[in-house]
Amino acid sequence: MTYVVTDACVKCKYTDCVDVCPVDCFHEGPNFLVIDPDECIDCTLCVAECPVEAIYAEDDVPEEMQSYIALNAELAKEWPTIVEKKDPLADHEQWAGVVGKIHLVER
């Protein structure tokens, strides 16, 4: 089982999770982070660090967010690895509580 970054991360991009990842499995896009399922070791450390609860175990991803499983796998192959914490996006507070943001993922 791997972990998956979902909807709450889109347009927020908190990187607290990156700081605790022992295997550097996070990848960074313009307005979203993803987890490489081939690199994730299921340590669960990132889950508690996410301030917007965007990270789920693959088996626990809510029904309406299942498409994020494939999206994480796809974009992890395209985006660069991120290994250090950065500031969230400038307007993160505005987007933190918004749901249904998959169409806003910038590639």
Results as ranks from 00 to 15, higher is better:
residue 1 M to E: 14
residue 1 M to Q: 13
residue 1 M to V: 15
residue 3 Y to K: 05
residue 5 V to R: 11
residue 5 V to F: 01
residue 6 T to E: 02
residue 6 T to G: 03
residue 7 D to S: 01
residue 8 A to S: 04
residue 9 C to Y: 00
residue 10 V to H: 09
residue 10 V to T: 12
residue 10 V to M: 09
residue 10 V to Y: 12
residue 12 C to V: 14
residue 12 C to L: 05
residue 13 K to C: 06
residue 13 K to W: 01
residue 14 Y to P: 06
residue 14 Y to M: 12
residue 15 T to I: 07
residue 17 C to P: 06
residue 18 V to M: 06
residue 18 V to K: 00
residue 20 V to Q: 03
residue 21 C to F: 13
residue 23 V to P: 08
residue 24 D to T: 13
residue 25 C to D: 14
residue 27 H to K: 14
residue 27 H to S: 12
residue 28 E to Q: 09
residue 31 N to M: 10
residue 31 N to A: 10
residue 32 F to L: 05
residue 32 F to N: 09
residue 33 L to A: 07
residue 34 V to T: 14
residue 36 D to N: 15
residue 36 D to K: 14
residue 39 E to Q: 14
residue 39 E to T: 15
residue 40 C to N: 12
residue 40 C to K: 08
residue 40 C to P: 10
residue 43 C to Y: 11
residue 44 T to D: 15
residue 47 V to D: 13
residue 47 V to E: 15
residue 48 A to P: 00
residue 50 C to M: 13
residue 51 P to I: 12
residue 52 V to T: 09
residue 53 E to P: 00
residue 54 A to R: 05
residue 54 A to I: 08
residue 56 Y to F: 11
residue 56 Y to N: 00
residue 60 D to A: 09
residue 61 V to T: 10
residue 61 V to Q: 06
residue 62 P to N: 05
residue 62 P to D: 12
residue 66 Q to H: 07
residue 67 S to T: 10
residue 71 L to G: 01
residue 72 N to I: 10
residue 73 A to R: 14
residue 73 A to T: 09
residue 74 E to P: 00
residue 74 E to L: 09
residue 76 A to P: 02
residue 77 K to H: 00
residue 77 K to N: 01
residue 77 K to M: 01
residue 79 W to A: 01
residue 79 W to M: 01
residue 80 P to K: 03
residue 81 T to D: 06
residue 83 V to T: 13
residue 83 V to F: 04
residue 85 K to R: 12
residue 87 D to V: 01
residue 88 P to A: 03
residue 90 A to M: 08
residue 93 E to L: 02
residue 94 Q to G: 07
residue 99 V to K: 14
residue 99 V to S: 11
residue 100 G to S: 03
residue 100 G to D: 03
residue 103 H to K: 09
residue 103 H to P: 04
